[in-house]
């Protein structure tokens, strides 16, 4: 009797989760399948899969012809990868210095950095724009990279500090006894040890950068400098009525992320659930 009850319960659980999974996937699914259909088929039967009759990639052709998707994509790549690199490097360096050395101002710096986790950098946009125009960086990818480094650092410092604190003292002290310099200790001993944490930080840093619209819109909106998010936004704004192009543009923006996500989802979810972010 209890066993049957358990089974019914498990069935209920699956039913709810499956329903929600469908709700989560359905919109994306509909967009992707319709991107491969002719205009007529999109409207006649939106839920049908493309068939030999209805298959069409005219949307993709249009998008590639009329926008610089490849440029958007490479801009996004450059901005994201450069930002992540520096966030990890500087983040680890700050985390190390704050956890390892006692010096005047340590606490103050730690508090200022921690505040950055909660207070969105967007609130300083007015002055950031002024700063960038003073530096002649408006409409450059450099401006974006600088902002994203500043945006990513606080969380990176926080997570990496947690990890660095767990590194046994003996390791560093043994090295110090051997006369190894502080900088070498950091790069040769600490960095290799916190690599797993860095992977987590990389994922957390990457998502908001890749998906950001605000700063590209404000700092680098001009032709040739758009990131993919901004590029898609502008393209679709321009061609709203061309359903094939809109669907194709969305699909082009979604697919790479989907593929990356499915590859790295384990790592990402482990990072999220390991308590690295508390």
């Amino acid at each position: 009797m209890k066993i049957r009850h358990d089974r019914a319960k498990a069935l209920m659980v699956h039913a709810v989760l499956l329903t929600y999974t469908l709700i989560a996937l359905f919109p994306i699914w509909v967009v992707i399948i319709n991107a491969f259909k002719s205009r007529k088929a999109i409207f006649n039967d939106p839920l049908a899969l493309p068939t030999a009759d209805t298959f069409s990639i005219v949307g993709f052709e249009e998008v590639l012809l009329r926008s610089e998707f490849d440029v958007f994509f490479s801009n996004s790549m450059i901005v994201t990868l450069t930002s992540i690199f520096f966030v990890l490097l500087f983040g680890a360096m700050i985390a190390w210095a704050l956890t390892e050395y006692k010096f005047k101002g340590n606490l103050l710096i730690a508090v200022l950095v921690a505040m950055g986790i909660m207070i969105p950098i967007r609130l300083g946009t007015v002055s950031i724009l002024q700063l960038m125009s003073d530096l002649n960086l408006v409409n450059t990818l450099t401006a974006l990279v600088l902002v994203y480094i500043a945006q990513g650092l606080p969380l990176a410092v926080y997570i990496l500090s947690e990890f660095i604190r767990q590194i046994p003292k003996d390791l560093k002290e043994a090295a110090r006894c051997d006369g190894v310099g502080e900088i070498k200790i950091f790069f040769a001993i600490i960095v290799p040890l916190i690599k797993p944490a860095m992977a987590t930080v990389a994922v957390f840093t990457m998502i908001p950068i890749w998906n950001d619209l605000w700063f590209p819109l404000i700092l680098a909106p001009s032709e040739g400098n758009q990131t993919i998010t901004l590029g898609v936004q502008q393209f679709i704004g321009q061609f709203v009525t061309d359903w094939n192009s809109v669907l194709a543009a969305l699909t082009l923006a979604i697919l790479p992320i989907l593929v990356l996500y499915l590859i790295f989802s384990r790592q990402l979810i482990r990072g999220l659930t390991s308590g690295a972010v508390k």
């Binding site: 520096f86 500087f90 983040g91 360096m93 700050i94 190390w96 210095a97 704050l98 050395y101 010096f103 710096i109 200022l112 950095v113 950055g116 207070i119 950098i121 609130l123 300083g124 946009t125 007015v126 002055s127 950031i128 002024q130 700063l131 600088l146 902002v147 480094i149 500043a150 945006q151 650092l153 606080p154 410092v157 310099g181 502080e182 900088i183 950091f186």
Partner: peptide
């Protein structure tokens, strides 16, 4: 003078303070 601390903190904090803290205060 603890140069190594400056080395570790310098570049990151320079960016963080000039692109995040200063703009916020300036705003």
């Amino acid at each position: 003078f603890p140069w190594h601390i400056l080395f570790f903190l310098g570049p990151g904090l320079l960016i963080y303070f000039s692109v995040s803290v200063y703009p916020l205060l300036d705003t």
